[in-house]
Amino acid sequence: MTMTPEIIALLMLDALFLFFAIIAFVLSVRIFVKWNRHATTPVQYALEKQSYLVSVVIKYIFVLKIPLFLFFIFTCDKLSNIITGAMCAAGVVNSVEFGLYLTLFKIINLYLFGFWLIVNRADMQEEKLPFTKLKFLLFSLFFFPLVAEIGLEISFFASLNISKIVSCCGTLFSAASTSYLALLFSVDSTVIVGIFYFFAALVGVAYFLKNRLVFIFANGMFAIFAIISLIVFFSTYVYELPTHNCPFCLLQKEYYGIGYLMYSTLFIGTFFGMCGGILEELTRRSDVSFFTISIIFDGLYCVIVTLYPVVYYLNNGVWL
């Protein structure tokens, strides 16, 4: 167990989140079970008031979770200085077996909590509060991945061992890796890049055809292949090294922290594409702004990642 100030900050906020999440969970279950919009009982009025506490708490958690995700990566990056063998966050994350799952949970939770908030917003915009039962059911469910994330994070830091020698991203993100990551490298990178642009194009087409389901689907696939193609192809152009495939080193100062920009645009784009789409499916009302935000940020992401190889080619006249 290592106690750097960063880890203490993360753990302290985890404890705070857990405390509030438990309150919100208990209230959510109660509201879900007892909610009756037509009742004029004191219980119903009390539930209405409590529903505000839940949404305040969730907003608080979500708003902090976004910077905390970046801060988590930053912390791992910093720890990589102490841990032998690790060159960036990737090595630190992978030094514990479930490190990658922790990151995955963190990402999924961002989508889930964001989704909850837009459902909440849609709910509050209608007099009949049509999604109240749904949203509290959702939170009762989302509570578990949140607890899982917090639990994983605590045990992650507890089992971090500075004296253990870990692999650096160079071996993790390569065909030589023993994990399933190696699978990615067995496929030709042009195929993956092709698929990535295909889904990017599909997002665009769905936008112009105003086809909601295709848009949601295309955004989901776009998110997945954006990450995969970033690892196997685009990252090498950021590093200008054909063998460096790390998705974490992008966040380092040497590359002007371009990763922060890439990941935020990708998240915003796909979040509004998927969650906004699902919400519209629910409300049966179209809110053009969601899709517009989505297409803008998806597009922005494409432009950023495309620029790297193109600029490289223009400067050097060859591809990596």
């Binding site: 919009r37 037509h38 004029t40 004191p42 209405e48 509050m124 007099e127």
Partner: peptide, 22 residues
């Protein structure tokens, strides 16, 4: 405040059933 039973209708709106924001 909200009644324990009955309806309050103001300008055609059933105000006692409205959520707080409304």
């Amino acid at each position: 405040s909200k009644p324990n039973s009955g309806e309050v209708i103001v300008d055609g709106k059933q105000i006692s059933k409205l959520p707080d924001t409304f």
